[in-house]
Design a protein around this nucleic acid. Sequence first.
DNA 1: TATATATTTAGACAAATATCTAAATAAAAG
DNA 2: CTTTTATTTAGATATTTGTCTAAATATATA
Lengths: 101, 101
Amino acid sequence: MSSPQQPVFKALADPTRRAILKRLQEGSETAGEIAEAFAISKPSLSHHFNILKAAELVRTERRGQHIVYSLDATVLQEAMAMLLDLFSPGDASHEQDNDVE
Amino acid sequence: MSSPQQPVFKALADPTRRAILKRLQEGSETAGEIAEAFAISKPSLSHHFNILKAAELVRTERRGQHIVYSLDATVLQEAMAMLLDLFSPGDASHEQDNDVE
DNA sequence: TATATATTTAGACAAATATCTAAATAAAAG
DNA sequence: CTTTTATTTAGATATTTGTCTAAATATATA
């Protein structure tokens, strides 16, 4: 079994992506709206969107010419659970795979 | 203000490092003991230790010729808090800096 | 249909990362 | 004080990552 949350931790490792999630937490936004808030090019943002989508941290929906991004908290919860696990010695009943080859 | 938890998320992004933390959660170990559990070289592990130390996720203590590594959960809690923040729209009273240049 | 707007894909490139082997350092034991 | 054991540092290298510009795609509108 290989770690299903690897893409999530990778996604969270970048400050720009965390900032995107932070914005989306306040409400859905179009790619363009998000792009306005950052100093990097739209293609670069698009690349970050792809990583967030791959990690299932965001969902997308087309609305006319716009693509609306919104937060998907489900996977975030799993990542949290994994971190929580690091706190709680003893209870290893729901141990996760650690993906070391 | 620049993100103080950037090193933590970077540290957590690597599966080997997460596995190291996981082991330490069960109890402190020497560098050598940890190394035995992984298929990579000791210098490579040492590199990972440095990153974990820089993120303040582990502490070290010399015991004779051995160096004992143990988990430091403090910073982990802060990371958790940041993730938790992503869940709770509305309450922005303890908002964190997002470190986008 | 032609044009404008929104977003993504393609391809290039520099910087960061994970890994390795060889050498250095530190402590213990003979 | 020399040797062994434990760990780290140095330096090299291949891969991954974040960024860019230019081009492609998709939708809306004149």
